[in-house]
Computed example of a mutant assay.
Amino acid sequence: MNHLENLKKMVTGEIPGPPVAQLLGFKVVEVEEGRVVIEMEASERLHNPMGTLHGGILCDIADAAMGYTFASTLADDELFTTVEIKLNFLKPIFDSKLRAEGKLIKKGTTVGLLECHVYDEKGSLVAHSTSTCMILKGNAEPKRVERGNGK
Rank of each mutant, 00 (worst) to 15 (best):
H54E: 05
H54T: 05
P49A: 10
L58Y: 04
L23M: 15
L136F: 13
C133Y: 15
I105G: 09
S96C: 02
L74I: 02
L125C: 07
M1V: 14
V118L: 13
R99M: 00
G138Y: 07
T82Q: 00
V83G: 05
E30I: 05
C133D: 14
N2E: 11
V29T: 15
L114W: 09
A64Q: 00
K143T: 15
E146W: 14
A75S: 13
V20S: 13
I93Y: 01
V31I: 03
A100P: 04
V20G: 06
E146I: 15
E14Y: 02
V145Y: 10
V111Y: 02
R147H: 14
K137N: 13
T73A: 08
K8F: 05
K91T: 12
L53M: 07
R147I: 12
E141S: 15
I61R: 04
F80S: 00
L53W: 09
M50A: 14
L24A: 14
I15T: 01
P92M: 02
P18E: 10
D77C: 05
I135D: 01
I135N: 01
G34K: 02
V126C: 12
E78D: 14
R147N: 13
E121A: 11
D76K: 09
L125Y: 08
L104S: 03
M40T: 04
E33A: 15
G150C: 06
T81V: 15
K86D: 11
T132I: 08
E33H: 06
D95F: 02
L58N: 11
P16S: 09
L24E: 10
E5N: 13
L24F: 14
T73F: 02
L125W: 06
V31T: 05
I135H: 05
T69L: 05
V29D: 12
M40E: 06
L90Q: 10
I93E: 05
M1N: 11
L87A: 11
G108E: 00
Q22V: 13
G102F: 02
S124K: 15
M66S: 04
L87C: 12
A64P: 00
H117P: 08
A65D: 06
T69H: 06
S131W: 09
C116P: 11
V11G: 07
A71W: 04
I135P: 11
L74H: 03
S72M: 03
E39I: 11
V83D: 02
A64C: 08
T110P: 01
A75N: 14
I57S: 04
G108P: 00
A127C: 07
A64F: 00
L7E: 08
E44A: 14
L46Q: 15
V83Y: 01
N139G: 07
M50G: 03
V28S: 03
H54R: 10
H54K: 06
H117I: 04
N48D: 11
G102H: 00
K122Q: 15
S129L: 11
A64M: 02
D63Y: 06
V28Q: 03
G138D: 13
N149S: 14
V11L: 02
P18R: 09
D95H: 12
L79G: 12
L125R: 14
L136W: 12
L113E: 03
G25L: 13
L104Y: 01
G123K: 09
Y68L: 06
G112Q: 01
E33T: 10
S131N: 12
D77G: 03
S43Q: 08
L136G: 14
V145P: 11
N88M: 00
K27M: 01
K86E: 13
M10Y: 00
M66Q: 03
T12M: 06
Y68W: 07
K97E: 09
I38N: 12
A127L: 12
